[in-house]
Design a protein around this nucleic acid. Sequence first.
DNA 1: CAGAAGATCCGTCAAAAGTG
DNA 2: CACTTTTGACGGATCTTCTG
Length: 280
Amino acid sequence: MWWHQHNLCFRHPVEEDYSSGDLDKKVATIAETDDSADSEVIDSHKRREILSRRPSYRKILNELSSDVPGIPKIEEEKSEEEGTPPNIATMAVPTSIYQTSTGQYIAIAQGGTIQISNPGSDGVQGLQALTMTNSGAPPPGATIVQYAAQSADGTQQFFVPGSQVVVQDEETDLAPSHMAAATGDMPTYQIRAPTTALPQGVVMAASPGSLHSPQQLAEEATRKRELRLMKNREAAKECRRRKKEYVKCLESRVAVLEVQNKKLIEELETLKDICSPKTD
DNA sequence: CAGAAGATCCGTCAAAAGTG
DNA sequence: CACTTTTGACGGATCTTCTG
């Protein structure tokens, strides 16, 4: 229970030997084993009322970094993920490269060409090219994939400005006019019609004013829920990444301070030896 | 080697914190 | 103040390690 009730008992994860792992799970375990007899009585809601809140990791880490120059700040944008294959990153064509939630790599070149590589494939050779042919293509160099996630029906979806691409596992009966690629063993892709400046993931949605039937309203609610879940899923991943980074930062700071402390103690002993009169 | 126990990861919910 | 973002809590799934 390290952040909660921190005004009473602030306990660093390192001190608890929780340097790696699911901290929140361990915290929950501790909370439950603290008083097993009462744990049934205190429900989660009541416990949440007791627990206090703390500032975000980004804020804390940035404050730490202002104190200690060696500590990197957490940036808004995620830095290039460590898993990106170098042979893709060094492609000559100017591209934007993204990794989907299932590990696929998506490279978007200028001109709207989308290339997809599976994690098991061999870098560029495993890339699958997909050219976007819609007339309202974004300007070169401005391509942004907004989300990469798995929808409820099991298909892989990612979004680019003006288009949504749905990656199907097998050949499906998609609308032929929208089919961009469906050859051989390759997955099938569907590019849906461009939308206006709607938020991330808002695709093919009617405006609320045009929703009449209960079925449409239900579909809208479902769509909103899926969008919210998708965003929160990504947010949780990012939050966990920040948390790990924060813990790493604290661990390294502990190591530095321990070394400093050791040096100071040695220095103190040396000075004591110099200053103290010898008895012999 | 099978099952138990622990560790880790992930998705979701809910509430606090942040923002315009 | 409404809306969005962030994060603790929780539970389930999967992987790893331990033990008989």
